[in-house]
């Protein structure tokens, strides 16, 4: 008996990297149009302020803003604290120099320490939150001075992990990167020409010396993004495990995702009427 050739469908895991791949030129074109439409047409702002940390997210955001609005309409704001690494400042400067955008450097140390002197026992998490919120005070105030709009830099992975300070990093009124996983931001960064030293360095919130996101989170972004991809689509833990992902990593990602839904919402309001805002009285943000 002659046997037929058997052609097998590849396993899910082999596709995962491919599924997270983006058409970077198309995404860039889309996000440039998003910035122009949401800033100029909808809100009447021609200028942007971006907090530049020296990391990849804020660098990509600055590159997109410069494309959308012109470098002369973008302000890159460096806001170091005394423990911030010198490298972060230098990397932010690389972006400023490469794009030719305006820049300001505001040392937030006196402001942060001015408060923390009353709370000397604050742990690292509290200190980090105070710094993040102070940066937003600076960014929003400078935006008022410059008649500019603060542009957010948070990516989808950190939003899903709740790996940000509530009402700080997430507070700018528009955000071009919020639906891109971290590994997709890297792809976009390389297409846009963000300096390789910024794209390839380990991601860090730079709140504690030597800290990296992946150490903090206990998982690499590559793995986290793939697991998130399947969890968000509704796959069960067992199904994802069958694809070859380690169970403890799936549970870690699921745990972070499910314990941080509140961080992705506005504050909870007690409903008392049939005209409760955002429950009954429903109008879109741009109405």
């Amino acid at each position: 008996m002659s046997k037929l050739e058997v052609i097998r469908a590849p396993a899910h895991t082999h596709d995962a990297e491919e599924l997270l791949r983006i058409n970077a030129p198309l995404v860039a074109e889309w996000l440039v149009e998003f910035l122009r439409d949401e800033m100029i047409r909808r809100r009447g702002f021609h200028r942007a302020v971006v907090g530049l940390s020296g990391g990849v997210d804020s660098s990509v955001t600055a590159f997109l803003c410069a494309r959308a609005l012109g470098a002369e309409n973008v302000w890159g704001i460096r806001m170091p604290y005394r423990t911030s690494s010198v490298e972060s400042l230098e990397h932010a400067q690389l972006v400023i120099d490469q794009l030719g955008i305006h820049s300001r450097t505001i040392d937030i140390t006196p402001a942060v320490d001015g408060y923390l002197q009353y709370e000397p026992d604050a742990d690292g998490r509290r200190r980090g939150n105070v710094m993040a919120r102070m940066r937003m005070i600076v960014l929003f105030d400078l935006s008022a001075k410059l008649n500019a709009l603060p542009v957010g830099t948070g990516n989808k992975t950190e939003r899903l992990f709740g790996y940000f300070t509530w009402h700080a990093d997430d507070s700018p009124p528009i955000n071009p990167l919020g639906d891109l996983f971290k590994t997709q931001v890297w792809q976009l960064a390389r297409y846009l020409g963000v300096p390789e030293v910024i794209v390839s360095k380990p991601a860090s919130a730079d709140l504690i010396v030597g800290q990296t996101d992946e150490d903090d989170l206990g998982i690499s972004y590559h793995l986290a993004d793939q697991i998130l991809y399947f969890l968000l689509r509704g796959y069960r833990v067992e199904q994802i495990e069958e694809m070859g992902y380690p169970r403890e990593k799936i549970l870690l990602v699921k745990g972070r995702l499910e314990s941080t839904h509140w961080k992705r919402h506005l504050p909870t309001t007690a409903m008392l009427s049939t005209t409760s805002i955002n429950d009954y009285y429903l109008r879109p943000v741009d109405y």
């Binding site: 889309w30 149009e33 998003f34 439409d37 949401e38 047409r41 909808r42 528009i174 879109p284 943000v285 741009d286």
Partner: peptide, 8 residues
């Protein structure tokens, strides 16, 4: 065409 609340 056009963006409406982030949706293009």
């Amino acid at each position: 065409v056009g963006f409406e609340g982030g949706k293009g």
